[in-house]
């Protein structure tokens, strides 16, 4: 009890309860890391001797290498096109007197209101009619559409925090409009852009159901490949692939914390 009070401060019971929740939240990720280090042919507990052999075996598996590359390309594509779109949309909504602004805002939330499986089906129909199925960029486009509100939100919070008088100051010191935008406005929107970009990248890297519907063998992304493998058997090799995701997630968190601070993500 005294330990609990020392650690939990004013809220000992709440703290104890929350620690259970914390364990519950990270258990699946941790267990994947543990299992991926086993050396047995099947997953069993307690883990047998430690080994990195499943990781080594990955590189020889085209089954995972191509999907991995596809996922990285798709996520990069999403991030690259969502950054300019996020910036102009947030600026347009914030700076200009737009009629039907509420309506446009609700419209821009459509990707969140349409269930993902339905979005996937919609892309299958539209992209299919346009002959886009089978192109990797079409997968990227689809994933950008479903996640774009995250980017807009994130940049909008930076736009709101920005003091427009700074622009007036730049202008009165003789800066041209474009110079003002590049040297004053854009740098101060960077925190929002960075956190939005990070979110877009991570969400696209992990996206599953829409990718499952609109990818074909050549454009398969890693989560889809992992899903296919899980349905077959649950060999420890899958744990090694999956732990790549857990490690990437951990790296992303550290990067996010260094660049903009984790707290920022709580407010977007």
């Amino acid at each position: 009890m005294s330990l609990l009070r020392r650690f939990g401060g004013d809220h000992p019971y709440l703290t104890a309860f929350t620690i259970f929740e914390l364990a519950f939240l990270i258990l699946p990720s941790v267990i994947i890391l543990v299992v991926s280090l086993g050396s047995g042919e099947i997953i069993s507990f307690p883990p047998t001797a430690l080994s990195l052999k499943w990781y080594a075996s990955l590189l020889a598996q085209p089954q995972y290498v191509q999907p991995f590359l596809n996922s990285v390309i798709v996520a990069t594509f999403c991030t690259a096109i969502s950054i300019p779109i996020g910036i102009v949309t947030a600026l347009g909504l914030n700076r200009y007197d737009i009629r039907f602004e509420d309506g446009i805002q609700i419209y821009l939330l459509l990707p969140f209101t349409v269930p993902l499986v339905v979005s996937g089906f919609i892309f299958l129909i539209i992209f299919g009619r346009l002959g886009w199925i089978g192109h990797l960029w079409a997968v990227g486009l689809g994933l950008t559409i479903i996640n774009i509100p995250f980017m807009i939100w994130s940049v909008a919070s930076s736009v709101n925090a920005f003091d427009p008088t700074l622009e007036d100051a730049a202008r009165s010191l003789g800066a041209e409009e474009i110079q003002t935008f590049l040297k004053v406005t854009l740098p101060s929107l960077m925190p929002g852009v960075i956190s939005g970009a990070l979110l877009m990248f991570m969400l696209a890297l992990n996206e599953f159901i829409v990718s499952l519907i609109i990818t074909v063998t050549d454009t398969e992304t890693l989560p889809v490949a992992i899903y296919g493998a899980i349905r077959g058997n649950i060999s420890p090799q899958i744990a090694a692939v999956s732990s790549v995701y857990v490690l990437v997630a951990i790296v992303a968190i550290v990067v996010a914390d260094r660049l903009v601070g984790l707290e920022r993500f709580l407010h977007t």
Partner: peptide
């Protein structure tokens, strides 16, 4: 925060797989 963002940044498939390992027969 770490416990919040590790799952958030790890896709649903990976987490379902984690549960398969936890709840499975062995």
């Amino acid at each position: 925060l770490f416990g919040l963002f590790v799952p958030f940044f790890t896709g649903v498939i990976i987490r379902a797989y984690g549960w398969l390992i936890i709840l499975g027969e062995n």
